[in-house]
Amino acid sequence: MRAARWVVSRIAGGAFVLWAVATLIFFALRMIPGDPAEAILGGPGSQASAEALAQVRRDYGLDQPVIVQYLTAMGRLVTGDLGTSYALKMGVADLIGQQLWNTLSLTVLALVVAWGLALALAVWASRGGGLGTRVGSAMEVVAAAVPHFWLAAILILLFSSTLGWLPPISTGGPLGLILPVVTLAVPLAGFLGQVMRESLIDALEAPFALSARARGETENGVRWRHAIRHAALPAISLSGWAFGSLLSGAVVVETVFARPGLGRTLLNAVTIRDIPVVTGVALVSALAFILVTIATDAIDRIADPRLATS
């Protein structure tokens, strides 16, 4: 019963967030000065004729009052119709469907790699004594603070231009995925690592760790079998947030590595003010964020049964 109520409240909350996102984006894009019709026709160096603009306004319903446009758009969204891209003249749902896998594979891989790196870093830093902790925490702070575009540039410089090991653009093939994934994973690993290390150190000093040691458990056994579960909890909770940050990081990474995906689609769409695409990508990102958050909540409840009963 409690679980059912939990599920229903999550779904209702998610639906509210989606509506809020759609509404916010709709009005935000119309607050920016300028004429979407110019954007639809334009592009640097092109001059739209009055006739062409009038035609475009009619075609896209831009001559309607804003509230009518809003209600039309919401009505369509409720029925699951994301509309048609102004620029690419194709269904937004199809467009997102084409690009979704590219971005999901990138972000999910980055999340996995970040977890791996963070765990390794946290375990190493927690065992190294004072020096290890200081070096580890310094590395975490630096990694967490590195901007994606800078890291991407350094990685291209090192592994493509200088060593020639990996391609600087990511148009296909697993080799092309490495640099984008590392670019996304490193800052996140720094962040997750900080959280994990602190809880790991706390856990290693907790009474249950002492009693495990007293039972004759080795230090590695204490670390991997007992303490790590506690250390992972806050990092699991943070993974929902982390996934969101990966989606925004994908905008930069996909652009720098010329990789097709939702982030690049979003950037292009914002630049030319392709409102249906911006709305569609934002909604899908919000949906993914909501699903991941629900999933991490659920995992939290499994990993720590106290949460489910409290």
Binding site: I156, S161, P168, I169, A258
Partner: peptide, 14 residues
Amino acid sequence: FIPDSASRYAALQA
């Protein structure tokens, strides 16, 4: 289409 100038050049170099 490679929007980033430096990536474009790196791709040419590579």
